[in-house]
């Protein structure tokens, strides 16, 4: 595992191979040291130290020493500011977003994709909502006019990647082991291996989970959340982060509506309550209902990606 960015968990596998870190990159640390090692750069971003910031342990008004190395030492205040004999706390300012590392990798993926005019969509849902079935049908419809590549995320097995490869589209399986979501570093590695063509569509099937993938930006153009009519219509309220993070909701399995008591309008109303900008398309991955609209949505986004191509 990379010690500086801690990126390899030792469990993640891409197409069965443990994720290695062959690609050299560098971290610029707070003290200006450049640390070179393998795999993609997040570019350490240390927030500038805010001198004079009152912190939570010490009394107000104490002053702060900033060392050459950027560390801060609190508590060497004017004489008498501390009770005698009390050891003085040494504080180091960090001010770093906990997910900053992932966000750095995601931005790198985003510009890699933008350079090539590739439209990347991150499909998220509960297990069994029909993501793989949707992908297979979508690829069948698109493949004659636009190249499609797929990144498949699952905790175990490469069944889904095999289902995709049966369509003729290149697919790479990422097994996250105990990880419950794909992260941007895994996807960056997958992009290098998969090498999708310019002006193409990259479909990412995330691990079936409506919670964690919401927080992990992969560098995609849009998250597409799939809600099937065999689930509860209140899912958008129970898992609001995911519906808020998505640009499009596909209501899947509408072929089953005659046999169920699923209030589609309520589900859509709840989703819009959480995200007023969310677009909604009702589809069936088995009959192809609604696919005209869904494919049209992809075409429009792809045209944007191609027009904005930066290379």
């Amino acid at each position: 595992m990379c010690n500086v960015c801690g990126c390899g968990t030792g469990e993640t596998r891409i197409d069965g191979e443990a994720v290695d870190h062959e690609q050299e990159h560098e971290h610029v640390l707070a003290d200006g040291t450049v640390h070179r090692h393998s795999h993609g750069p997040a570019g350490q971003k240390w927030a500038p130290v805010a001198a004079g910031h009152a912190h939570s342990h010490g009394p107000e008004g104490e002053h702060v020493h900033e060392d050459m190395d950027g560390s801060l030492h609190y508590g060497h205040g004017p004489a008498g500011a501390h009770a005698p004999g009390m050891s003085q706390a040494q504080m180091v300012k960090i001010e770093q977003n906990i997910l900053a590392k992932n966000d750095g990798f995601a931005e790198r993926n985003r510009s890699w994709l933008a350079e090539r005019g590739i439209l990347a969509l991150n499909l998220v849902s509960s297990p069994g909502s029909g993501k793989t079935t949707l992908l297979v049908r979508t690829i069948e419809a698109l493949k004659r006019r636009v190249p499609v590549a797929v990144v498949e995320g699952d905790q175990q097995t490469s069944f889904d990647a095999e289902r995709i490869r049966a369509t003729g589209a290149p697919a790479l399986q990422i097994n996250t082991g105990k990880g419950c979501h794909l992260d941007a570093h895994m996807v960056g590695r997958a992009l290098e291996k998969l090498a999708p063509s310019d002006n193409s569509v990259l479909l990412i099937e995330n691990v079936g989970n409506l919670v964690c993938p919401a927080a992990f930006d992969l560098g995609e153009a849009a998250k597409v959340v799939v809600l099937s009519v065999t689930e509860g219509e209140d899912k958008p309220l129970k898992y609001p982060d995911m519906f808020a993070a998505a640009s499009l909701m596909l209501v899947n399995k509408i072929d089953l509506l005659p046999y169920l008591n699923f209030p589609v309008d309520k589900a859509i109303e709840y989703a819009l309550r959480v995200n007023p900008k969310l677009q909604v398309i009702q589809v069936s991955a088995t009959t192809g209902a609604g696919f005209h609209e869904w494919l049209g949505w992809i075409d429009a986004r792809l045209a944007e990606a191609v027009a904005a191509r930066t290379r």
Binding site: V92, I94, K101
Partner: peptide, 24 residues
């Protein structure tokens, strides 16, 4: 939420800071 991933993110940040700023 994914508290485990968050805790891992915190560990990385703390270890990075220790290495770059020299505290143990």
């Amino acid at each position: 939420m994914h508290e485990m991933s968050l805790a891992e993110g915190i560990r990385q940040i703390v270890e990075d800071a220790g290495r770059s700023q020299g505290f143990g």
